[in-house]
Structure formats: structure tokens, C-alpha cells
Simulated assay, not measured.
Amino acid sequence: MTSQQPEQVKAELGVIPETALWTLYQRAAEARRPDAMLHDPKAVELVDRLDHPFAERFGTSPLQARLQAMRVACFDREVADFLEREPRGTVVCLGEGLETQFWRIDNGRAHWLTVDLPESVELRERLLPPGPRQRYLAADATDLGWAEEVDRSHGVLLTAQGLLMYLRPAQVRALIAGCAELFPGGSLVLDAVPHWFARLTRSGRMRTHGYQVPPMPWSMDAGERAKLRSADPAVAAVRDVRPSGRGLAGALLPLALTVPPLSTRRPSVTVLDFAERPGRP
């Protein structure tokens, strides 16, 4: 007797929410490799379950999948380090889409809050029903009302992976400033695309197969990260997160990113640490 196969789920998302399918596909493609630098069986499971023409729409690029895995690993490393320090802390994932980080690095004690647009949350709930320590909140990440839902009692780490580049510059500054004021002692892990890449998306020249990358209003060269401190006085420190990887390619790619002009004009992952409030218990 054969086991019943999970029902196929059709994904119908808007232009920007659809980017969650692109990143999911890249993670799964890397995870399927025998020498994968990212172990993500949940991503493979979701790609197999979704009724979506992934290969036809996004194409196939082992290099793109590996680069995506390196970016994701930067976020995983920062979240894992936070959970080492604060095992019962809260991880707030802004614009999480179909990210499967919880299944990769959850420690069994932390609390996770996903904040995303209603259509993205609806699909996530169907594919990844939340467990007892997970909560999904349908809201615009730029509307800081979601902050009232965050448990601050054991430390907070916020992530904005694949989100900020789709916001206007003023929205990015306001979001950083709001998080800095609302989560003293916390941190925000974010990623950015360089200016040259964002210009290509805005000109419509960033296209692969049947997929047009959405325009990206906000960008930041890696060498500009120190400017993020100007978003708010409560941004106490800015730190670059360098990628790492396995094998020859995994070693050479991070090394190449240290050589100009890539060292200053590359995609980047950055951590912002927020100052404690004086007198905070």
C-alpha cells in the first residue's frame, strides 16, 4: 500500500511576494546537490509540493543557487549565535516569505514571529503550518504596529532578508529607526543589493527566462554600510557579515569578495546593534 502524496498547492502571488518562490527554488536547488553548502530539506519538500513552473520561469543556475545559499548561511549564522546567547529569545522575521530557517536552526526553546503581507502569510500557513512557538502575523513590515506583538522578555533579534531593497529609501530609514527605538539592546540583520544591480532592475534589464526581477528602489554598496548609523542615534554599531562556504568554490567566492571593486560594490549582509536604554532593568 503506497502512502498518499501531499496535495499539490498552486502559488499565485503578486510581483514582489513572488520573489519568495525564487529564493525558495534557489535554496532547494543548492540543497539537492551532493556537496550542498546549505542543508534545507524543507525547501526541497516545498518545491516538490508547489504547483509552479520553477525551472521554466526562473531558469537553472548552479552559481546563483550557491550564491543564494551563501547569503542565507550568513543569516543562519547570526540567528544561531543569538540563540546561543538567548536560548529563549524571540526571532522576528520581517517579510519572511517561504523562508525555512526555523526548520534549519531552531533550538527547541526560542519563539519565532513572521511578519509578512496577507497573501504571503496565507500561502505560508498552507505550506508551513506554525508550531506552538511560531506565530504568523499578516501585516506590512513598514507599519510598526506589529512591534506590540513581540515578546521582549528574553532578547530580540530581527531579520529583514530580501525585503529592504523593495522599499523606498525613506521607508528603509524609518524602519531601521523604529526598530532601534522599539527594541533597545536588540539587533537587526539585513541584506542589501549594490547600486549597479538595483539600477539594472529599475531599467528592466534584470531578466532570466520568463522572470522579470522587480524594480528595487533601495540599494547600498557594501562600502556604505556605516551610513546606516545615521538612521537613528540608537543604532550603536554596524557590522559586516562575511560569507563562508565549503569546497574550492565555497572558499574562493568569499575570498573574491574581499578584492576591489567587489569588496565595496557587492551584495552585503549587515548587522545593526541597538543601544540599551539607560536604566533598563
Rank of each mutant, 00 (worst) to 15 (best):
R126S: 10
R126G: 05
L127Y: 03
L127P: 10
L127C: 13
L127Q: 08
L128M: 12
P130T: 10
G131L: 08
G131I: 08
P132C: 06
P132L: 02
Q134N: 10
R135H: 12
R135M: 13
Y136E: 06
Y136L: 11
Y136I: 05
Y136Q: 10
L137T: 01
L137S: 12
L137I: 13
A138D: 04
A138R: 10
A139T: 04
D140N: 15
A141Y: 03
T142I: 09
D143I: 11
L144G: 02
L144V: 11
L144I: 09
W146S: 02
W146N: 05
W146Y: 03
W146M: 03
A147S: 10
E148N: 14
E148L: 15
E148H: 08
E149C: 14
E149Y: 15
V150W: 10
V150P: 09
V150E: 04
V150I: 13
D151Q: 07
S153N: 13
G155L: 00
G155F: 00
V156K: 00
V156C: 03
L157H: 03
L157K: 12
L157A: 14
L158G: 09
L158C: 14
T159R: 07
A160K: 03
A160E: 01
A160Q: 06
A160W: 01
Q161N: 14
Q161L: 15
Q161A: 15
L163W: 06
M165Q: 06
Y166S: 07
Y166L: 03
L167V: 10
L167A: 13
R168N: 11
R168L: 14
R168E: 14
P169M: 05
P169Y: 09
A170Y: 04
Q171I: 07
Q171W: 09
V172M: 06
V172D: 01
V172T: 06
R173A: 15
A174V: 09
A174G: 05
A174D: 06
A174C: 01
I176M: 07
I176N: 08
A177K: 03
A177C: 04
G178Q: 09
C179M: 15
C179E: 04
A180K: 04
A180W: 04
A180F: 08
A180N: 04
A180V: 01
E181A: 15
E181T: 10
E181S: 14
E181Q: 15
L182I: 00
L182P: 00
F183W: 03
F183R: 05
P184H: 02
P184E: 02
G185E: 07
